[in-house]
Design a protein around this nucleic acid. Structure first.
Length: 301
DNA sequence: TTGTGTTTTATTGCCTCC
DNA sequence: GGAGGCAATAAAACACAA
């Protein structure tokens, strides 16, 4: 109980020796009476013999009486091996000590034990259990913090997703408008192309892009080439999925680009800056993937 | 009073460090 | 190899509803 004597206690357990006797064992051991100790153990009835013996733990009447008398006394109670909770004063003192330092140096352990009338081993065990409790609490606190972070991110993600949907809707409305306007102008003017009166959504987007370019006066053909190239490749870097609809990723990119272009045009910025933006926006998937619809934020615990 | 869940004290086995 | 720490666990003590 108080000393680190695993093996001997295990042996005692295997012989079904009651806790009080185990305590006696250790007391006697601490006084160096190993011989009498051995005799005590050897005299203790084995499992089989115990079935025949009488008393609480199956030993003789005399020995049971001795134990009973011991239990009646204070010392007997203390030696009975029953767990006894530490007094509130002892716990308070230990708590104070733990707050100062949660590890226990040998000197401090002995000193605390003396002050509180405990065995050094008891103090060590108390600190060990206290550290375990502290760790559990700490884990709970960490979990709460992480969960709050996650909830915040989730909230942001949801609002961005809503925003994204609204923008997509707006874009499709604009496309429809463009389509009808185009049809009207085609009807009045001479036919330019035998293909179709209403262009595909891809072409519309490219046209929109071209228009923006012409408006801001730049003639950056490289970007158009890149756009057309990527478009013809049909890959998702531009954000078109298999259904020819525009993914949220490209939508955000597209609007960011348009916005930055208008700003650049307004402020008189030209060529190079625009080129840089295009490159960063159209070539790096990371730019918007963080809040991609396909990838909801997730935390791994 | 009793059944049940929680807390506290203690043990055991394994691991690391010196 | 011994000392000490830690995780897992047992078991006693305690709290509390029914």
């Amino acid at each position: 109980m108080f000393e680190r004597s695993h093996k001997t206690e295990k042996d005692l357990k295997q012989q079904q020796i009651p806790p009080c006797l185990g305590f006696l064992f250790r007391i006697m051991k601490s006084f160096g009476s190993s011989e009498s100790l051995g005799a005590l153990v050897s005299n203790f009835p084995s499992k089989e013999e115990g079935k025949l013996a009488k008393g609480k733990y199956g030993y003789s009447k005399e020995f049971q009486a001795m134990l009973d008398s011991l239990e009646q006394e204070d010392i007997g109670e203390e030696m009975s091996g029953k767990k006894r909770r530490l007094s509130s004063e002892q716990v308070k003192a230990l708590e104070r000590s733990f707050e100062v330092e949660n590890k226990l140096e040998p000197e401090r352990k002995v000193k605390l034990a003396e002050e509180l009338g405990l065995q050094p081993r008891q103090v060590a065990i108390w600190f060990q259990n206290r550290r375990a409790r502290w760790k559990t609490k700490q884990l709970e606190r960490d979990y709460s913090v992480l969960k709050a972070d996650y909830d915040g991110l989730k909230h942001n993600y949801d609002s961005l997703e809503r925003q994204n949907k609204a923008l997509a809707e707006k874009l499709s409305q604009l496309k429809a408008k463009l389509c009808t306007e185009g049809a009207e102008s085609n009807g009045s003017a001479k036919e330019e192309s035998p293909i179709s009166t209403c262009k595909s959504s891809e072409n519309i987007e490219v046209d929109l892009f071209k228009n923006l370019k012409t408006k801001d006066g730049s003639s950056d053909s490289d970007s158009n080439e890149v756009l057309m190239k990527e478009e013809s490749n049909g890959n998702s870097s531009l954000g078109y999925n298999n259904n020819n609809s525009i993914s949220s990723n490209s939508m955000v990119n597209w609007f960011q680009l348009s916005e930055s272009r208008s700003l650049a045009a307004g402020k008189g910025f030209q060529g190079q800056l625009v080129r840089m933006e295009e490159q960063s926006l159209f070539t790096t998937d990371e730019s918007c993937n963080f809040f991609s619809v396909d990838q909801a934020p997730s935390l791994h615990w």
